[in-house]
């Protein structure tokens, strides 16, 4: 279980996170939503162990991630940063294997790489240089790398959490689904998945639970249909929205009223 209690972070006199309580269980998909600058990425950095100055209680399977070294953390969780880059022309295949712990036998690494290439629809690109790919293709390659790290961590006796920051940014519709299907499948296999998303409809369709953040504070947390209500979202984003509940929960800005107001 990945758990935060009264998690707060102040940096340079500015409060970035205040009093966050959250709990991510194995097998669960939690979407973190909120306007730009709400502290979503900062929250993820705290949970991943990269940001170590937060106060409050933080536990990843009983241990504080901020107290673990990088190699231990890498077996416990895998992280996809927002717009990941690479500066050397590795092949897609080589990049996917880059994050794998060395303790794993080479045969297993190859098998996991194949699995990730299939899962993220990269077989046509596998020998291309990463720097020649489009932004979206690079993004999928990094997602594949992170999946291999996650699976490898689990084989080595750790590996329970997948944290992804805007995994669908810069992707076309088909590949948004490819990437989120990979994340969903991870949740179905028993990993705890936390994803920062912007598309509310997409989040409602994929996540078990949703956490709304604004100015570093929790606005709401719970199942999508409880959390994503019209008054709450209008207050959160400051514009008129339409929430349709039917066989699918859909949230869109109320475009007609948006343009009329302008």
């Amino acid at each position: 279980m990945l758990e935060a209690k009264a998690l707060s972070l102040t940096k340079g006199g500015k409060t970035l996170l205040s009093d966050i309580d959250l709990c991510l269980k194995p097998g669960e998909f939690l979407a973190v939503l909120g306007p730009n600058g709400a502290g979503k990425s900062t929250l993820m950095h705290c949970l991943s162990g990269a940001e170590r100055r937060a106060t409050g209680q933080l536990r990843m399977d009983g241990r504080d991630p901020a107290s673990l070294d990088a190699a231990t953390l890498a077996r416990q969780r895998a992280v996809l940063e927002q717009s990941p880059r690479v500066s050397a022309p590795y092949s897609v295949e080589a990049l996917i294997q880059l994050g794998t712990p060395r303790e794993l036998p080479i045969g297993e690494i190859t098998a996991l790489t194949e699995q990730a290439i299939d899962l993220l629809d990269l077989s046509a690109l596998r020998h291309r240089s990463v720097l020649q790919l489009s932004g979206g293709e690079q993004h999928r390659t990094h997602m594949a790398r992170v999946m291999v790290q996650l699976w490898a961590g689990q084989r080595l006796g750790g590996g329970c959490y997948l944290l992804v920051d805007e995994p669908t940014a810069s992707l076309d519709l088909q590949h948004q689904i490819t990437v989120l299907r990979a994340a969903r499948q991870a949740a179905a296999e028993g990993y705890g998945v936390l994803a920062i998303l912007h598309d509310l409809t997409l989040a409602a369709s994929v996540a078990h639970r949703i956490l709304l953040l604004k100015d570093g504070r929790m606005i709401a947390e719970g199942q999508p249909q409880e959390v994503l209500t019209r008054p709450r979202l209008e207050a959160l984003y400051g514009l008129p929205v339409r929430v349709e509940t039917g066989d699918m929960l859909t949230v869109t800005p109320d475009y007609a009223r948006c343009w009329a107001a302008a």
Partner: peptide, 17 residues
């Protein structure tokens, strides 16, 4: 090799940067 991912991602991948 991991540094080529940038320092933050290198840390995520297990490198004590």
């Amino acid at each position: 090799d991991l540094f080529q991912l940038g320092e933050r991602q290198a840390f995520h991948a297990g490198l004590d940067v």
